[in-house]
Amino acid sequence: MLKFTDEHEWLKIEGDVATVGITAHAAEQLGDLVFVELPEAGTALDKGATAATVESVKAASDVYCPLDGEIVESNQAIVDDPALVNSDPQGAGWFFKLKLSDPSAVNALLDEAAYKELIA
């Protein structure tokens, strides 16, 4: 199941774990990324907390945690090569995997059609 937030994140939900990244729209708006900082596995985060930081040539931006949960894995590949987020934002450019405190909370997120409408 694929869900979206109005903060321009996508979540691919498998059981109680969500793989989280930023949308192609967000990556395009940010421009060429040169630095990514990700949360460590084991970090518990509330919805809305700063989970990651991305920096383009020009500016720094925060990536917020989309739901309450615990980080189970971060994508070292985008730390080593931030350009992956620009080239494949909804694939190889994923940010982290989040074990959801309440898997039913995903129902409140946007589906793809609603997200597309948001950025239209």
Binding site: G31, D32, V34, S56, V57, K58
Partner: peptide, 12 residues
């Protein structure tokens, strides 16, 4: 214009 379609990195 802050950037064109090529993007800041390529422009630089």
């Amino acid at each position: 214009p802050v950037q064109y379609p090529a993007g800041v990195m390529k422009e630089h």
